[in-house]
Simulated scan of single mutants.
Amino acid sequence: MMKTPLLVILLTLLGLKAQAIEVTDSLGSHEFATAPQRVVTLNWAATEQVLELGVTPLAVADVTGYRDWVVQPALAEGVADVGLRQEPNLERIAELRPDLIITGDQQQDLVPRLSQIAPVLHFESFSSEHNNADAAREAFVQLARALDREPQAEQRLAWLDARFEALKGRLHQHFGEQLPRVSVVRFVDTRHVRIYGDNGMPQYALARLGIAPALPQPVSQWGQVQKKLTDLGAIRDGVVLYIEPFPEKDKLFAMPLWRAMPFVRAQRAAAVPPTWTYGGIMSLGYLAGNLTESLLSIDPQ
């Protein structure tokens, strides 16, 4: 049972009523008497979002994975690790006495048990039924409201819009008026690849930079389609950017099949530093920045 905040008690004694903070997540509406201070995030997108709002979470699910795959924004040392995203340590979370737990995609089944520990906000940001970027922006706005960080959210979103424009300018300065068509991929193994398409965060980032896809893919929940590596051969005059890490990179790049790809022969492939492609709205800024730096390594043709 949560303790009543001291501020609420004082206002009650004075005959005043604190205005509740109203927040809407994927499960409905919620009210908070005061902004939560002790926050646990069990989804990497949620972790990213609260960090962007200037809030350091009390604990995070899979700290090591966040630092390997998400990277930005950086997670401070000392943040507690409460286990895997799909199997968090409920006893450890309860010991930390949070006043808010935030969950995300594919974690809805955890909500009933977590709600016995503290209030839960749950955001399903990835679906083929909606625009994933718009859903991520709305989740960011709602979290800012819950944490009393709305001015910070406005500043960060303004920064994001300005960043897109600045990066677009750099790309035009490098390539000229016509920007190349680009497809972003993650290698699954040496025979399969995930190609990002409509509703994918990389595609949203590219669109904001004024770039069209080299190999368009249909709308899907996560904005990606798994294909055979040979399907990349259809990219004749575009650019392929592959997101790291991929442990079998050297093996793949030594294969005759890879070296025969038209974009490889034309030296129009480049690596992208580890960047999370299933994150919140601000992840688009990091994606756009890393994609731009990779594109600038390719000679204009």
Rank of each mutant, 00 (worst) to 15 (best):
K3I: 09
L13H: 10
L13I: 15
L16K: 13
K17H: 06
I21P: 01
I21V: 12
G28E: 02
E31Q: 12
A33P: 00
A33I: 12
V39R: 03
N43D: 15
A45R: 04
T47Y: 07
Q49D: 15
L51F: 09
G54W: 06
V55F: 05
V60W: 01
V63C: 10
Y66F: 06
Y66I: 06
A74E: 11
E77A: 14
V82A: 03
P88R: 01
E91A: 13
E95W: 05
P98L: 06
L100G: 06
I102D: 12
D105Q: 04
Q106Y: 12
P112W: 07
Q116P: 06
Q116Y: 06
P119Q: 02
H122S: 01
F123N: 11
H130K: 09
A133W: 00
V141E: 07
L143K: 07
A144F: 02
R145Y: 05
Q155A: 15
Q155P: 03
Q155L: 10
A158G: 10
D161Y: 05
F164I: 11
L167I: 12
Q173R: 14
P180I: 09
P180C: 10
D189C: 02
T190K: 00
G200A: 09
Y204D: 12
A207H: 15
G210V: 12
P218A: 11
S220R: 13
V225W: 02
Q226E: 15
D231W: 00
L232M: 01
L241H: 06
P247D: 14
K249Y: 04
K251E: 14
L252S: 06
F263Y: 07
T275W: 02
G280V: 07
M282W: 07
T292G: 01
L295M: 14
P300I: 11
